[in-house]
C-alpha cells in the first residue's frame, strides 16, 4: 500500500472542487466565530455515524456528502441559511448554468 503510493501520482487534496468549497465555507464560518470547532466535530461525527449504519463509508465522496448534510442542518438551525432559501438559490444556479452559453462565466441574475 505505501510502496504503491510512492510510485503513483500524489492524490489530490480535494478530489472534487465542491469538496474544497464546502470545506472552506465551514472553516470560514468557524473562523468568523459562527461556531466552535468541537461543536462542528460533534455534529459531523453524528452524521457519519448515522450514515455509516447502512453502509461502509469509504472516506471519499460520501465523507463530503456527510459534511455538506451536517452544514446544511446546522445553518438551518442557526437560521443562517433556511432550507427554502437554499432550494430557491440552488435552482437559480441550475437555471443559470442551463441558460449560459458554454464558455461564458455563469452568474446569478441580479436580485430584484
Amino acid at each position: 500500500m505505501s510502496d504503491c503510493a510512492e510510485i503513483a501520482a500524489p492524490e489530490p487534496v480535494f478530489a472534487e472542487p465542491w469538496h474544497a468549497q464546502v470545506f472552506a465555507v465551514t472553516v470560514a464560518l468557524n473562523e468568523a466565530g459562527r461556531f466552535a470547532w468541537p461543536e462542528w466535530a460533534a455534529r459531523f461525527s453524528e452524521t457519519l455515524k448515522r450514515n455509516g449504519l447502512s453502509r461502509d463509508l469509504d472516506g471519499g465522496d460520501d465523507y463530503f456528502h456527510a459534511w455538506l448534510e451536517t452544514l446544511e442542518v446546522f445553518l438551518a438551525e442557526q437560521g443562517a441559511a433556511l432550507p427554502g432559501d437554499v432550494a430557491d438559490v440552488q435552482s437559480a444556479w441550475e437555471d443559470a448554468y442551463l441558460t449560459t452559453p458554454h464558455g461564458q462565466p455563469v452568474r446569478l441574475p441580479q436580485r430584484r
Binding site: E16, W18, Q21, L75, D85, V86, V89, Y97
Partner: peptide, 26 residues
C-alpha cells in the same frame, strides 16, 4: 450548448455560499 451543469451537491454548496455571502457571513 450551455455551460456544464455541476453535480447536485456542488449546486447545494454554491447556494449556501451565495446566501452566506449575501448576508455578509462569509
Amino acid at each position: 450548448p450551455h455551460a456544464l451543469l455541476p453535480p447536485e451537491p456542488a449546486l447545494r454548496v454554491k447556494a449556501l455560499e451565495t446566501i452566506l455571502t449575501r448576508k455578509g457571513l462569509i
